[in-house]
Design a protein around this nucleic acid. Sequence first.
DNA 1: GTTCTAGAAC
DNA 2: GTTCTAGAAC
Length: 218
Amino acid sequence: MAACVVKTSCFPGLHLQKKNVIHFLCCAMASASGTAGHWSKGLLASMNDPEAVIDADEDLVTIKDKYPKAKFHFLILPRRKIPNLKSLTREDLDLLEKMHQKGEKIANRANEELQFRFGYHAVPSMSHLHMHVISQDFNSPCLKTKKHWNSFVTDYFVDSKAVIKSIQKHGQWNVNKEEMDQLLKQDLKCHICKKMFRTIPELKAHIVFHDVTKPKTR
DNA sequence: GTTCTAGAAC
DNA sequence: GTTCTAGAAC
């Protein structure tokens, strides 16, 4: 790997920012090792990254989300290649149930107190079907944009159980892409008390005061 | 999916 | 002047 060590001083006169240098080196190394790929294929790489994988069995691999949008944020992926929700059929129902059960197990292992949701983005950016397992605090520096927020608190986030029911009933999952795009643009609303906010920083300052632990049964 | 940044909003 | 967002990335 010695050949990969490149000092910026090797390029006098090139005033590249550190991030650009890192990006350049990563692309060069990925290209040299044959692992280069479009960003949308990144989950496949993560599935084979021991740093990312926290659980694996014969059907499913669980990874930490690379940019977690809450204190706990994991992705459950089937080993079998399934591109997206639209490609699901009744033959996948057993797998979908397993994904949900795995999600509950992973969530409890991570934190028994917090509320979690299990579900899919209606129109995901990353290829390869993946179920989000995300705690409902949404307290994370990686949550930065309106799109991030709305993708987890509006109907753009489809509960795992809703997908399973749809496949049982209709044998498929249908999505209106235009409708989903509109959801991502809607005004910022607290997922707990429905209060409206003008900016992401204001919303983030607000949500930390909500209790998102599971209701106590006594 | 993220990074970067121009210019809007304050 | 600073904060924040939205859109390009070849």
